[in-house]
C-alpha cells in the first residue's frame, strides 16, 4: 500500500471515528403519563409571512469564526423563503430562494458558490424558520418528562421538537439511520413571535455552529416579487 493510500485510509478511519463519537440516536417517546406541553409543538416557527434581520455568529469547521448579517423573507403557507447573507460592511455574499419548486440562486460569492455549501445553508435556514415538511409521526414525552413531537423530514429522517427547560424549544434532526445530525435551540419567542436567539449545531467531523441574534423582525405581506431576482 502506497504512503498516500495509507494516509487516506488513516484520514477516513479518523473521520469515521469522529462521526461515531458524535453519534446520538433517536430514543423512544413515552406515550403514558406525559405532562401537557407548555406551548404547541410548532410555536417557535413564524405563522405568517415575515421579514427578519439577524446577526449570525458563525463557527465553521476547525474553529474558524466570523459574523455575518442574515436577511430572511418567508411565506410559511407556501413553504417558500428568501435568504440573503451579507457582511457587516454590506456586501451580499449569498442570495437565494428555496421553495416547493426548488432552489434559485441569485448571487453566490465564494465559498457560497459551492453547491454543497449553499444547499447546507438553505437547509439550515429552512430548519430554523419553517416547520418540518413531513407528516406528524408521533407525540409523547422524553424520559425526563419533557413533551416532544416528531415529524418526517424531507430526507426521510426525523425531526423531533421538545419543550426546552427554559420555555424555549429544541429541534433535533436525525438522519434516515436515526443518527442525530443537527440540533437547534430556540429561545422562548418574544412578543413579536420570534425567538430572540437561535443556536444551530451540526454534528460530525465537519460540524459547525451558528448563533443567530434577532435584530429586527416584521410581518410582511407575501408579495411574489420578493421571491424574484
Amino acid at each position: 500500500m502506497s504512503r498516500r493510500r495509507r494516509l487516506l485510509l488513516a484520514a477516513w478511519l479518523l473521520l469515521a471515528a469522529c462521526l461515531a463519537i458524535s453519534c446520538a440516536t433517536l430514543g423512544h417517546l413515552q406515550r403514558d403519563k406525559c405532562p401537557p406541553a407548555k406551548t404547541p409543538c410548532l410555536a417557535v416557527f413564524p405563522h405568517a409571512a415575515w421579514r427578519a434581520l439577524h446577526e449570525i455568529d458563525v463557527t465553521a469547521p476547525f474553529g474558524k469564526k466570523t459574523t455575518l448579517l442574515g436577511l430572511t423573507i418567508g411565506d410559511p403557507a407556501a413553504r417558500r423563503l428568501r435568504a440573503v447573507l451579507m457582511t457587516v460592511e454590506g456586501l451580499t455574499l449569498f442570495d437565494a430562494v428555496a421553495g416547493p419548486e426548488g432552489v434559485k440562486i441569485f448571487r453566490a460569492l465564494p465559498p457560497f458558490d459551492a453547491a454543497a455549501f449553499s444547499a447546507g445553508l438553505l437547509a439550515d435556514v429552512q430548519a430554523v424558520f419553517l416547520p418540518p415538511p413531513g407528516a406528524l409521526l408521533e407525540e409523547g414525552c422524553l424520559p425526563d418528562g419533557r413533551a416532544a413531537c416528531r415529524f418526517r423530514t424531507a430526507a426521510a429522517g426525523v425531526a423531533e421538537i421538545d419543550d426546552a427547560p427554559d420555555g424555549g424549544r429544541t429541534l433535533r434532526i436525525f438522519c434516515k439511520g436515526h443518527r442525530l445530525i443537527k440540533e437547534i435551540d430556540f429561545a422562548p419567542p418574544g412578543k413579536d413571535g420570534f425567538s430572540p436567539t437561535v443556536a444551530v449545531k451540526t454534528r460530525g467531523a465537519l460540524g459547525y455552529s451558528l448563533g443567530l441574534r434577532l435584530l429586527e423582525a416584521e410581518s410582511a405581506a407575501p408579495v411574489e416579487s420578493v421571491f424574484a431576482p
Binding site: 455568529d57 458563525v58 465553521a60 474553529g63 474558524k64 469564526k65 466570523t66 459574523t67 455575518l68 457582511t87 457587516v88 456586501l91 455574499l93 460569492l109
Partner: peptide
C-alpha cells in the same frame, strides 16, 4: 467582531 463581551478576530471569511 464583538462576541461574548469582547472583540474576537474574524478567522473564517476572506472576501
Amino acid at each position: 467582531f464583538w462576541r461574548d463581551d469582547r472583540f474576537v478576530k474574524d478567522t473564517a471569511i476572506s472576501v
